Computed example of a mutant assay.
Amino acid sequence: MKKLSMFMLTVCSTIVFAQKISDYKYVSIPEKFETFKEDFGLKNFLTKALTGKKYITLPLIKDNWPTDAKNNYCNVVSANILNDKSLFKNKLIIQFKDCNNNTILESKGSSNIKEFEEGLQDALKQALIRVPVSNPVAILPASNNVVQQTSSDNISSASTESATTPEASNYSNGKLDLQKIQLDPNQFILAKSGSSVPFAVFRSTSKNSVFIVKLADGSATIGYFENGNIVIDIPQADGKYAKEVFTAK
């Protein structure tokens, strides 16, 4: 199992984190940019600029999102504008983050125009130069054909015989109580109730009941179903893995 963990971790590191902003169709924009006391027309400017680059902008509240965005929020990237304060210039930073709060793109802009509204919009225009035109792709499992390259001996502990797909939606390891939410046939998450950031995102592999897992801290590992429970190999500081079992409640 450890051999499989290391192999899949390597593949996951090179594929899962290779997502580009142009891979997305949807961008959510907050009602307010928290580091600015006023809007200065930034939200409207950003919305128009992204629309011009063929993105579909969405509000932060998910109630009116399109079905494919609402059913799988990993199809949506979140935009934010940060005030990069300076005495002599209007400066800002635009960030785009995925559903796991990982930064996909960060770009800085500055302007010599001293008036706040005009200067900040000019700075945003400069920052948006690095944002490519949307060319969306389907978000597929990051592990296509990965497990097929390993021997069956390495995955015996997660074999079909011992794997039972859990039916319960609530799980606990004794310290954390998590809810299993199925996003689509190839992807589900474990999340704390009320949290906007998943504890773990599971993506299917070509091996039944074995998943590539992306944890909330950005680390990648594997998980699998075992006797009705969900198991995650948690990476340790010494490079080893600890088996974490989440039991159905």
Rank of each mutant, 00 (worst) to 15 (best):
S22L: 12
L124P: 00
V147R: 05
I222C: 01
F246K: 14
G174M: 01
S159Q: 10
Q95M: 11
T150D: 13
A191W: 11
S206L: 04
A216R: 04
I113T: 08
T67F: 13
K89Y: 01
T47C: 08
I94S: 02
T51Y: 10
A158K: 14
I222G: 00
K89M: 05
N135S: 02
V131I: 00
K54H: 11
D63K: 09
I155M: 15
P198K: 03
L178C: 01
N75K: 06
N170A: 10
N227S: 09
M8N: 08
L215K: 01
S219Y: 07
S195G: 04
F17M: 14
Q95R: 11
Y26W: 12
F225C: 10
L183E: 07
I104N: 04
D122H: 06
S111C: 08
E115G: 15
V245G: 09
L215Y: 02
S151A: 15
L4R: 09
D63C: 07
V11T: 13
L87Q: 07
D23F: 10
P166A: 00
G52P: 03
F246P: 11
I56R: 11
E226M: 06
K43G: 10
G223A: 01
I155H: 15
S169Y: 01
S86R: 00
L105V: 01
N72A: 02
T67H: 11
N72M: 02
K54G: 11
S111F: 08
Y26G: 14
K20H: 07
N100Q: 06
K192D: 07
K114N: 14
E117T: 15
A216V: 04
C12L: 10
E115P: 11
L92F: 01
T57Y: 11
K175P: 07
S195W: 02
F225N: 12
D177K: 06
K43C: 12
L215N: 02
K25L: 14
S5V: 11
K214F: 12
T67Q: 10
N72S: 09
S22K: 03
K20T: 06
K97H: 12
N154H: 15
G109F: 09
P59Y: 10
N112V: 15
A18P: 05
S143H: 03
I56D: 13
P30Q: 05
N170P: 12
I230Q: 02
N229D: 08
K108A: 10
Q236E: 08
F116Y: 15
Q126K: 07
T221R: 00
I189P: 04
F225G: 13
F40T: 09
D233M: 05
E106W: 06
A163C: 08
L50Y: 00
I104M: 03
L46Q: 03
N229I: 02
N100K: 06
R203D: 12
L215T: 02
G52H: 03
Y224P: 05
L215D: 05
K114M: 13
G223F: 00
S28V: 04
A158G: 15
K32R: 14
I29S: 12
N144G: 10
P198I: 01
S219D: 09
F116D: 15
N90G: 04
F33E: 08
D39S: 05
L128V: 00
L60Q: 15
F246T: 14
N100D: 08
E115K: 14
Y24C: 13
S78W: 14
K32D: 13
M6V: 12
L4N: 09
S162R: 15
V147S: 12
E31N: 13
S206V: 03
K37L: 11
L105T: 07
K180Y: 01
